[in-house]
Amino acid sequence: MTNPKTLIIGYGSPIRGDDAIGPLAADALDAGPLPAGVTVISRHILTAELTEDIAAADRVIFLDATVEGEPGEVRVRRLEPDATALSSMAHFLDPRELLAWVQTLYQREPAAYLISAAGQSFDYANYALSPTAATALDPMIARVRALIAEPLPT
């Protein structure tokens, strides 16, 4: 049996402090050993052209920073396509909106998760996390590894 195709997308601005945790976690995962069938992408923002990559995956894991929760806290939640989660911005998308694009255009609905880490500072920086957010990096990566070790949900 072949491994499920898993797509990991870490996203956030590299120059806005803890917002960089998604891309940093993605880069760390990409640098380490990964099971077959796992692809890692690092982006500033979620854009429409990611739909083709997502449509080709069985499972997609988004990694992002959040202002919700205690700084350093890591949360995992399932995501469903949601066409009403329209981003108010012209050139980036909400992950649920992106999943709805995939569902509408490609009739595909991969199992989707959002792993978020609560940030503390979103001020100007360059791939530099606050000490508190930095403590979330390893747990975030561990959550990803745990997820991709699981079979696909039925």
Binding site: T47, A48, E49, E52, A100, W101, T104, L105
Partner: peptide, 25 residues
């Protein structure tokens, strides 16, 4: 009257738009 309306009306056009932008990017 938004991108989802376009996708429903003409999904092939919407996919073309995504692909063209992807090529440029």
């Amino acid at each position: 009257r938004n991108i989802f309306g376009v996708m429903r009306q003409d999904p092939a056009l919407a996919r073309d738009g995504i692909r063209l932008r992807q090529i440029g990017q």
